[in-house]
Design a binder for these strands. Sequence first.
RNA 1: GCCGUCGUGGCUUAGCCUGGCAAAGCGGCUGAUUCGUAAUCAGCAGAUCGAGGGUUCAAAUCCCUCCGACGGCUCCA
Length: 632
Amino acid sequence: MQILLIHSDYIEYETKRSTPVAEKIEDSLKKGRMEEAVAVFVAVERDDEGNIEYATCKAFEEIKKVAEQVKTNRIMLYPYAHLSSSLASPKAAVDTLKKLEGLLKEAEFEVKRAPFGWYKSFTIKCKGHPLSELSRTIRAGEKKCAAVVKEKEEVVSEALKSEAKATSYWYILTPRGELIKPDDFDFSGHGNLAKFVNYEIHKSRAVDKIPPHVELMRRLELSDYEPGSDQGNMRFYPRGRLMKSLLENYVLEEAARKGAMEVETPLMYDMNHPTLKKYLDRFPARQYSIEADKKQLFLRFAACFGQFLMNHDMTISYKNLPLKMVELTRYSFRKEQSGELVGLRRLRAFTMPDMHTLCKDMDEAIRQFNEQYNMCIDVLSDIGLDLSDYEVAIRFTRDFYEENKDFIVGLVKTVNKPVLIELWDQRFFYFVLKFEFNYIDAMDKASALSTVQIDVENAERYDIKYIDPTGEERRPLILHCSPSGAIERCMYALLEKAYMNSEKGIVPMFPVWLSPTQVRIIPVTQKHIEYAEKVAEGLDCRVDIDDREETVGKKIRDAGKEWVPYVVVVGDEEVNSGNITVTIRSESLPNKPANVKMTVQELNERASDEISGLPYRGLALAARLSARPRFM
RNA sequence: GCCGUCGUGGCUUAGCCUGGCAAAGCGGCUGAUUCGUAAUCAGCAGAUCGAGGGUUCAAAUCCCUCCGACGGCUCCA
């Protein structure tokens, strides 16, 4: 916020013409005059929008200080856009001005406020003494002022009021349908669930290690922080890009298999679009905003916007339902608080498959929910995460539960292990039912992967309708589904899992279909490279050749450090026998490689079998290791 | 965003407390070695000690501000 304070003999204004953003005012406010007053010219800036309370209170303090110094009790607030080139939205500006006016009045100042959004003429007679002209820049900053603390308490108490209404009731639901309070539940044999419940309910997250996956993502040259961007925006090296691409394609193909139509929608939207504005108001200050020409734009944080706007314009018959659309958001942007960002776990720009299903009624929504619940289990399983890696949370309103008890218990039976239940007396969010699969990492932290929600609110908000058999317009229910959750987060989970495995004495690796190199061929000396090439030609997967002038021991070690699933050493023996010796990583123990003699064809069959039915791409790097640059 | 800890060649770190020529390993380059399952040998290059400011004859080292990472609070995919 920029403010300019002028101690004046008098200030007077008169409105001339309204602009499109003008506030509505009574005629009495079209002219104003104040004698012996501090005129406060104010430009509310974009930065203030994140913390209007702070900016308002800080401005209040500054004005109060100056007014006391120049010994006046009269304040004229005057909106003055020309003090800044980075203005807040008109709505935020008016809010701020009104709040500031309120604070000043509370402090017993005599306050007048010139109307916002009008062309005005004004006359001011500046006193000209040393303190009569002052300017202040207010930035969301370090110190809290007294007024902020007071204001915060009020905000908190508001939030507490709403939270009282939305009390969460926590339970554990077993596959046998028993609903048990967490305190009464015997967690033995359910260590991860205990961690998850602890994480969710008690919010106990004390940890003193650095996250293992952060080190691994760099050591494996998958991805890294990009200091040249904003925090939480990653760079992906060729290996990481390959893995990510495979995962992306996989989820899209699975969605397509379930009948979803792939679409693409814009990354940025008009902040003042009437429909979007309402939606945005539920997620204050969470998005990146940018300015283009005169428009205030925000970057999407999911694909909902684009798809719902598309749904709004579509002509949809009941015969088209359930109607599925999917988009892989590269990227979804969420301006998370900087302290929350961690490696691939929590980002500001992330890739999320986002599928929406329009359903004609609750019965269909529930059937779809069940189908997608199962799809999510299958998707995570192919990615390399099984039911022992994540915990299930199901959250719903009491009403929904009363009407669909058997269905909920059925979901628990599907996974055949106890799940965490969160139940609300009233609907507090836009959904009545949702589940997430929460991955539990090496530091006992939980992160949501797959999720499905039954949305009962946005069809109305976006005016999405379908025509029923009688020709009537009706509102569909909308399922939100992310079959895998964020792609980066899947990579994080795989890295954390590999780390935990290595702690348990299991050799860490990725699923073969995701391994950047699937087969590494190590020629014993330079003269065996030609033979290595021949072996490579017989393999239908990502094969590379370590042609560097290093010892065999070194090359073996390096292949191990890259988690290559199959390592083939070729020397005189292989050239003579025609067979190859393969080190199979998945069957190896630490310091105990599993070496198996087989033919090239046998290895090819084995590898092809493991990756069949899953997306495939060629090597991300040169086939000869000597030609590869280092990224770290 | 707030609180705490940290930031030294591309990477991992020593040096910082107690100010006095910036060290090592890995990686890179050059040469020798042509090697059989977790690191072959030798040499060379490579640093604005996160950035900016201050104190001092002298700052990687002490002080301040900012940036970034990690951890906590809060939140989520």
